[in-house]
Nucleic acid binder design. Structure first.
Lengths: 340, 340
DNA sequence: GATTCAAATGTAAGCGCTTACACTGAGGTC
DNA sequence: GACCTCAGTGTAAGCGCTTACATTTGAATC
């Protein structure tokens, strides 16, 4: 028997159970292929030694890890939290483990994280959005690691997606806003560079304006990273500007609540002085006062569907495709008609 | 040269560069031990083949992964987000990668995740709180994986900790509440079983009450999981109960904003009809209206210090210890004196 | 030019596991 | 009783990498 101070190996277990390493391995991986008496003996040895398989070795020999990686742009706010939680739950019930890392919205870091996860043997990857260096997709293909882009729906892309139509959703919201009489509209958008969702949402607003025959030149757009404080700052600029908007449409709820806070700090009222809308319908939207008008995204459903789809790809039951989910409007008190 | 369709290995690189595998390995790990000409040739081959080292193999051969694991109770809300972000940033600058997973506050799942991370070769682990099965600590010790408990400060524990004194902080807040004349106080606490922080905070409230000579029997306590909706439900129970409290102290900000929402829904006012306090000072606290009185926790600093301390342990520069950070009160409008 | 020695590189032994294949022997068949 | 099956188990060959040790190389020294 080997030195008990160091981590026990398969070999140690085999020795103390009086069987071969193959048998121990089988006990752990396909117990039904081993007769009960032996199995019990082996399991006792495992217990007694406190044995845990070495993952690296296992990966190397078996090429499967039952690990899925996810790289999200941020953990700082709850945008991805709910969807990710559902994703993890579904993976867990199917016997997979989720490892998450965050890119802080930086393509460079995202690439590192992707490589880190692949190197660590992730069987599949969940990515957010699909706007990234094609070389990365080639790399993944080369490594044989399937990936799925969530939070977007794009039937024309080669890359499998699961999500909703950001552009159409935002267009629908915009139509509601214009139908309430708003003509002076401003936008606080996320940074559009390298972010297809932010771009699609902005385009959606333009679509909506066109439908209402509002000239696009009247639209003020501020781009800023998705953080509450940034929403507040942008809002201040807008409200102190020459031509104050009657409605501020925000790229997501986080920016919107920042904007709402600022309106309050300026001694003004939402929605009496200005209407505000968000996007995502995270919990925050119902917490603020007044409650926020926003686009509801089926986060949990998306997470669950993503898990199922990705596992299908990993287990070669499908090769991906595009899954569309429906978003819907949540009209709440932060949006009000212009009095005539 | 091997089949170009499959993932290239060290061997392939060595062959196309016309050197041995040892040289390639050295190029990758300690470039200065290889002469420039060779190095360039090797790097070209790496580039050309799109080679990425196989992590499992690397771990097995080198026993180091430069990976740190963190298991947090939840990703659903932002309690841990800020601290974790800082933790990751610090790790990143020191050349480590962070892998996160969530236990959904379930000890069983937490244990699985710990094992999963250790098996995947994590060099060290960040845990939240230190209330868990001693067998787990023994397991980690056995595997030689150092771990650090954050969000708590406990100089008496064997387990290294980095955090603040939950109990004293909550006691200080309670003293403020009682000094404002509140006598009928209710508590919406997190689930205390298996959660040392929730327990310490509750004890802190009791300490504060004792100091103000308020009998502990007058204290109503509801325990519920940390979710906004649960805060709302608990609040409803309290406000509709026989002996309505004048102040509701919540175990964290998440519960507090849920309670605030409910007060508003009941057509009542914070702080005129009831004062509400939280704990953590996450962004939410400043977003709600009125802003929430709470205990400020130095999340970013904690994350950063945790990273430094854990790496020191991993690299055997220290064996841990207890690091104390200071929390502080943030008095905002959700708490108001009882009119006399 | 012979000798010395450090720097550069190569050789090959594992790291801990899975699994194809080989072996063994008990039960069934004729 | 000879022969066949096949479930249960063992043997041993890798998986892709790092690294101790061995070897080669070439500049410096005499």
């Amino acid at each position: 028997m080997s030195d008990m101070r160091s981590v026990p190996t398969l070999d140690d277990v085999a020795r103390t159970a009086g069987v071969s390493t193959a048998t121990v391995s089988r006990c752990l991986n396909s117990p039904d292929r081993v007769v009960e008496g032996t199995r019990i003996r082996v399991m006792n040895a495992v217990e007694q030694l406190g044995y845990t398989p070495n993952f690296g070795a296992r990966v190397m020999a078996a090429k499967r890890t039952f690990t899925i990686g996810a790289i999200i742009p941020t953990m700082e706010n709850a945008i991805f939290a709910r969807g990710l939680q559902a994703f993890q739950e579904e993976l867990h019930t199917r016997g997979y483990t989720l490892l998450v890392s965050s890119s802080a919205y930086q393509p460079k870091i995202e690439e590192e994280q992707i490589r880190a996860l692949v190197a660590r043997g992730a069987d599949g990857l969940l990515l957010i959005g699909h706007d990234r260096d094609p070389a990365l997709y080639r790399y993944l293909q080369r490594q044989g690691v399937p990936s799925l882009s969530a939070w977007v729906y794009d039937p024309d892309s080669d890359q499998p997606t699961v999500g909703f139509d950001n552009r159409a959703s935002m267009c629908a919201l915009t139509e509601t806003v214009t139908s309430l009489g708003h003509r002076k509209i401003a936008v606080i958008s996320g940074i559009t560079e390298g972010n297809d969702r932010a771009r699609a949402r902005l385009e959606g607003i333009r679509d909506g304006l066109r439908k209402a025959a509002i000239p696009l030149e009247t639209l003020t757009v501020i781009e800023t990273p998705y953080e509450i404080e940034n929403g507040a700052v942008a809002c201040e600029t807008l409200m102190k500007g020459a031509d104050r908007p009657t409605a501020i449409m925000c790229g997501n709820d986080v920016l919107a609540v920042g904007a709402m806070r600022k309106v309050r700090e300026l001694g003004l009222s939402v929605p009496d002085d200005v209407s505000i809308t968000g996007f995502d319908d995270i919990e925050l939207a119902r917490i603020v006062n007044p409650p926020l008008t926003t686009v509801h995204v089926p986060h949990r459903d998306m997470g669950k569907r993503a898990a199922a789809a990705l596992i299908d790809m990993v287990e070669k039951r499908s090769s991906g495709g595009a899954i569309e989910l429906q978003s819907s409007l949540r009209l709440r008190e932060s949006l009000k008609a212009i009095p005539r």
